[in-house]
């Protein structure tokens, strides 16, 4: 990274462009695809999905509710109708399985813009900026919940740039673009991964749902790591990688267990040594005794 080497160049050499962008492409397809399904109604009159990320009804039968918004509503003292509750249960169940912050990487439309900001930062070598704790988001989360209870208003929806962007694209943007732009510029110039990685209480909420999620990224081939640091450079939550990648000696298992891993899979893409892969949270034994078992495990995995 220090010698201005392009991040992921090694992976590009060994795996080819498609191989080095597989999960990124799938992720964009998912984000854009979900957005397209929502837009198909208002733009083309094909109503597969009605509503927005706060609540939607698919094919007039499947309700999906944002559990964070609904929790704020419950805290104001309102008891919602059944459909909203069922929808929230379904969404919660889904993210308990696939990892809460998969929402951030695979669904959230704002993520594409903050990813772009992060990419521009790397591309043009924009360094530094304001640093503050990544736990700020949990403070914000707690504040929105307390404030919802105190004011009787669903407070985060007054400001939520994620909801404003998504709702805006579907129902009319108005001045919402300015708030979205502010988040983008904040990430670009003020704080790296500032919004998604430090502030967004929506992501913080989903991370808590996904605390015990089944689907996890693991570093089974960590013995093969050549310390190129590319995964750290592209990861929006790099602090989640280190304990696992460098933890073999300490007896830490190969699964990235941090609930702030967004399951974006970029580390899998940029690693030329195929250290990472998707898997379950089980099989998390440290296997200290087999330091060079990499080659066989690789064969077994694929």
């Amino acid at each position: 990274m220090s010698e201005n080497k392009k991040i992921g160049a090694d992976a590009l050499m060994t795996k080819g462009w498609l191989g080095a962008h597989k999960w990124l492409l799938l992720r964009r397809a998912s984000q854009l695809g979900i957005l397209a399904l929502f837009l198909l109604g208002p733009w083309a009159g094909i109503w597969l999905i009605k509503g927005n990320l706060a609540y939607s009804l698919t094919l007039n039968t499947l309700p999906l509710t944002d559990p964070y918004v609904l929790l704020q509503s419950l805290l104001t003292g309102h008891v919602p109708e059944k459909l909203a509750l069922i929808g929230a249960a379904l969404v919660t169940g889904l993210y308990v399985v696939i990892g809460g912050r998969s929402y951030c990487a695979w669904v959230c439309p704002l993520n594409m813009l903050t990813d772009l900001a992060a990419w521009l930062r790397r591309r043009f070598g924009i360094k530094g900026g304001a640093h503050f704790s990544r736990n700020t988001r949990y403070w914000l989360l707690a504040m929105t919940l307390l404030l919802s209870a105190a004011t009787g208003t669903i407070v985060w929806e007054m400001l939520n740039p994620v909801a404003m962007l998504h709702r805006g694209l579907i129902f009319g943007l108005g001045m919402a673009w300015s708030i979205v732009l502010a988040v983008f510029l904040f990430d670009l110039f003020v704080s790296p991964d500032g919004w998604c990685g430090h502030l967004c209480p929506v992501g913080a909420f989903y991370s808590l749902i996904g605390k015990t999620s089944l689907l996890r990224v693991h570093a089974t081939q960590r013995a093969a790591c050549n310390d190129c640091m590319d995964c750290f450079a592209v990861c929006p939550e790099p602090q989640v990688i280190k304990p696992t990648l460098k933890g073999q000696a300490k007896g830490i298992g190969p699964v990235i267990t941090s609930h702030n891993c967004t399951n974006c899979g970029r580390c899998i893409d940029v690693c030329s040594k195929d250290v990472f892969g998707f898997g379950s949270r089980f099989n998390n034994k440290a296997e200290v005794s087999a330091p060079q078992g990499g080659a066989t495990a690789l064969g077994n995995r694929s």
Binding site: K50, T76, T153, A163
Partner: peptide
């Protein structure tokens, strides 16, 4: 005041209004 705690701003009412009279407030 109760509406502010109950409405999750999903726009389902907007969609199901046959005369398209409803709008969601912009920022």
């Amino acid at each position: 005041p109760d509406f502010q705690g109950a409405c999750i701003r999903c726009g389902m009412c907007v969609r199901d209004c046959p005369y398209n009279i409803l709008e969601l407030a912009k920022p």
